[in-house]
Simulated assay, not measured.
Amino acid sequence: MLAAFAHATSADDPVSALSVGERPEPIPPDGWVPITVRAASLNHHDVWTLRGAVTPAGGLPCVLGTDAAGVDDDGNEYVIHGVLGDPARGRGDETLDPERSVLSDAGHGTLAARIVVPRRNLVPKPAELSWAEAACLPTAWLTAYRMLFTKARARPGDRVLVQGAGGGVATAAILLARAAGLWVRVVTRDPAKADRAAELGAHEVVMSGTRLPSDCDVVLDTVGQATWKSSLGAVRPGGTVVLSGATTGFDAPTNLARLFSRQINVLGSTMGTRTELEDLIGFLVAGGVRPLVDSVAPLDSAGEQFSRLLSGQVFGKVVVEP
């Protein structure tokens, strides 16, 4: 079967470690289901694997991908939940399972024509969502949903700041926040993305380096090192900063005096539960919100698509079809 996989690692040139070609079709373990993939989307987690920062359990080569939507052998349509975990070990939340993993790290990546997943990870796909839209949900959109509503507990009227304008989580956060009645400020370094963020519905878009008022109830940060000081400075006393990624690095100094004197809540967040994915899908169907798809391309162009992702010029999610 056709698949995009890491055959090596390269910290400096991750795309050089990527291959697209034939891989053996996976055999489902007990309790797992074979799925024919209709669409899958790219994530920065795949890039970390190509760089060697993430070590797959089965070693290399390793099929990449944590997001997909497809059909089982009976023709049932599903969105694939990418988290492998036991809710019982996570006190009701599989993302808190100490043994939690994701499909690609466990050797069952989704950038392939055929995949196998646990039956529990199959969430029915509604007819209202296209295959490409459905493939955007399990990582970026689920992450944004959990950050906003599970972690930050954002409520209508809250002021939310989103660090970054073009990534999958950022665009999802803007659209979800607006649909939920939140006031949205976006920070970006790219003037073109600033215009597009405003088109998505951001109430205010400011350029990186601008001094921000400390008035936000919630700050969502997936950038990390480059934006951390700004994120802590932009939240009101008693407000919440939610961190779910660090695409610019992990070494971010923190002003501890500001943290405790202003009683800022700092929360980490990673992907989301199957239940939250069901809730997200229900939210999209009921509210008419749809994932922003940057582009849809054949799976055999995965190398080119990862290069685009790394360039920082995409706006929304990059989707590939086997």
Rank of each mutant, 00 (worst) to 15 (best):
I35F: 09
I35Y: 04
I35M: 08
T36Q: 15
T36R: 15
T36K: 15
T36G: 13
T36W: 11
V37A: 08
V37T: 02
V37L: 05
V37D: 06
R38P: 00
R38L: 06
R38F: 04
R38C: 05
A40T: 13
A40P: 09
A40G: 04
A40Q: 04
S41I: 02
S41H: 01
L42Y: 01
L42H: 05
N43Q: 08
N43D: 03
N43C: 09
N43F: 00
H44W: 09
H44L: 00
H45I: 02
H45P: 06
D46I: 07
D46E: 10
V47S: 10
V47M: 11
V47N: 04
W48R: 12
W48E: 11
W48I: 09
T49R: 02
T49D: 05
T49L: 04
T49W: 05
T49F: 07
T49A: 05
L50S: 04
L50M: 14
L50N: 08
L50R: 04
R51A: 02
R51F: 05
G52N: 11
G52Q: 06
G52K: 07
A53H: 12
A53K: 10
A53P: 00
V54S: 14
V54G: 02
T55F: 04
T55C: 04
T55K: 14
P56M: 09
A57E: 12
A57C: 11
A57F: 03
A57I: 09
A57S: 13
G58Y: 02
G59D: 14
G59H: 12
L60P: 14
L60Y: 14
P61D: 13
C62N: 12
C62R: 10
C62K: 06
C62L: 09
V63H: 01
V63Y: 08
L64V: 14
L64Y: 09
L64D: 11
L64K: 03
G65W: 07
G65D: 02
G65C: 12
T66P: 01
D67Q: 04
D67L: 00
D67P: 08
D67C: 09
D67E: 12
D67F: 04
A68E: 10
A68N: 13
A68S: 13
A68G: 14
A69K: 02
A69G: 09
G70R: 00
G70T: 07
G70D: 02
V71L: 12
V71K: 06
V71I: 15
V71R: 14
V71F: 10
V71A: 13
V71W: 03
D73Y: 05
D73W: 08
D74K: 13
D74N: 14
G75R: 05
G75M: 09
G75C: 04
N76K: 14
N76G: 06
N76Y: 07
E77H: 10
Y78R: 03
Y78E: 03
Y78W: 14
V79H: 12
V79D: 15
V79A: 11
I80F: 03
I80C: 05
I80W: 06
H81A: 14
H81Y: 10
G82P: 01
G82V: 00
G82M: 07
G82K: 02
G82Y: 00
V83N: 10
V83D: 07
V83P: 00
L84R: 09
D86T: 07
D86Y: 02
P87V: 10
P87H: 11
P87F: 11
A88N: 09
A88P: 05
A88F: 13
A88K: 13
A88E: 15
